[in-house]
Amino acid sequence: MTITHHPDIATLMAFSAGALEEPYAAVIATHLAMSEGGRETVRHMTTIGGALLNDEPNAKLSDKALERLMGKLGDERIEVPSHTPSDVPLPLQKYLPRGLDGVRWKWTGPGVATADLAWGRDGRSRLMLLRVAAGRRVPEHGHGGQELTLILQGAYKDRFGVFAKGDIADHDEDVEHQPIAEPGDDCICLVAVDAKLTFQGRLMRALQPLFGI
């Protein structure tokens, strides 16, 4: 797999520092599971961050600080799926235990469907799947905030190039584009957003409450 498009370096730094909301962290973790180059970049960031922390002066801790910390962590069990779908990278399997074939899609427009997977602590950031039928286009739109889009299947093209499996688009509110799914397989993307899209056409703006994106 040749991955051409990668996250912005600031997004990777926030992921490495544990500062991303769950939807964004899930997209980046899934991308890294598909990208050896991305994992190497994060390893370098972690090494640099560790060196910087090591140079900081020692802080005084109160008595039983470690004991209180361990108590806050709790003993929550992590459920490991008995069946791991082969079409879903490991970080995504807890959201899609039945794989892509088990997704319950919601019609969002002609040739377009979505499926919600999770929400962030702020209640605004959202993790979802987007499916665009081969050859169909998403109406031209901008973004009210940050959008991360990772290709899981198929491909799409826009003014930034062709995005295929493993590629990630890291867009902010300054970006407007119109993705068009490439011929062949339907394009399925993992998407994290923290605001609704801003459509350019009057009709799409009127229908947006119905579509929910």
Rank of each mutant, 00 (worst) to 15 (best):
G120A: 08
G184R: 04
L90M: 14
P57Y: 08
A10K: 12
S82W: 10
G145K: 08
G18Y: 01
H171F: 15
M70P: 02
K196C: 04
D116S: 09
P139D: 12
D122I: 04
K94W: 06
W119K: 12
L20S: 01
W107Q: 13
L210A: 10
V132I: 15
G161M: 04
L61W: 03
Y156C: 09
R39G: 09
D75I: 11
S82D: 15
R43D: 15
P183N: 06
E36R: 12
A181R: 00
A10M: 11
H83C: 09
T108F: 02
L100C: 07
A65Y: 08
R77C: 07
M1P: 12
Q93W: 03
T41P: 02
V175W: 13
P179L: 03
Q200L: 14
R126N: 06
I78H: 07
T198V: 14
G74S: 05
A195N: 13
R126S: 00
N54I: 08
G38P: 03
L53G: 13
L129R: 01
N58H: 15
S125G: 04
H31N: 11
D87A: 09
P183F: 04
P209E: 02
L207I: 08
G109I: 02
S86C: 09
L127P: 00
Y156K: 03
R137S: 15
G109N: 00
E36P: 08
A164P: 02
S35P: 09
E67Q: 12
P183V: 02
A169P: 01
E56K: 13
H171S: 13
W107A: 13
E21I: 00
